[in-house]
Amino acid sequence: MRQAQPTGGTDRAPGPTAPPAYMACGVKKIYGEGRSAVHALRGVDLEIPTGEIVVLLGPSGSGKSTLLNILGGLDRATEGTVSFRDTCLSALDDAGLTLYRRRHVGFVFQFYNLMPSLTATENVELVTEIARDPMAPEDALALVGLSARADHFPAQLSGGEQQRVAIARAVAKRPEVLLCDEPTGALDSATGRAVLSVLRDVNAELGTTVLMVTHAASTAGMADRVLHFADGHIRDVVINDTRLDPAEIEW
């Protein structure tokens, strides 16, 4: 069920000839001031092609989550420019960033961040409500294999199920990019593999560009492209010729 209609301000045109999803140039992020200042990013340049699965790998504090937040419009770079397609994110004000997130980006977090007071379906509806061309919430839940649990509250779901609801919620609006911050970080290996499979399926079926932050090196096998982070820099970029099936990943 591949969808190719334009859904956002930018045309969806996956494939090697499509413009890159993200371009970043000289991105720096400094938290705090003076002596207590923390340099989370010390100058990052990158280009992420549309339709790839990209894994951001590195130890804690290496800057990968910070970059993900900046790419997702959750935070701003202190210096440098970041563009999504032909939109310069650095130039957007808060309202612009909000609109950008609303139209183009799906988020998946380590701790699911489901609204405890809403059922699985309602959590998905929270996003489809404000999207321009969303899937039906039931379809999104079917995509992550949770149709049977649609009316359960988060407290009634296992960790893996909660994370799948979070993914369903993120993809239900058919985002161009899906940003995942340690999506398997709180899960055991079997559940973690299942979640990664769902991400792979989303990428394959919807053509969504997937960026995934992780510190588990083994996850890198399923990616098209792996960015290795250290001390606020991208140390190197590895392009995989073949992607592993998540089921084959060593945990």
Partner: peptide, 16 residues
């Protein structure tokens, strides 16, 4: 606060 942040991450506007 966390739920507010989450809603904003989804693209809900400040007004909403």
């Amino acid at each position: 606060r966390e739920e507010i942040g989450l809603l904003k991450a989804f693209g809900y506007t400040d007004a909403e």
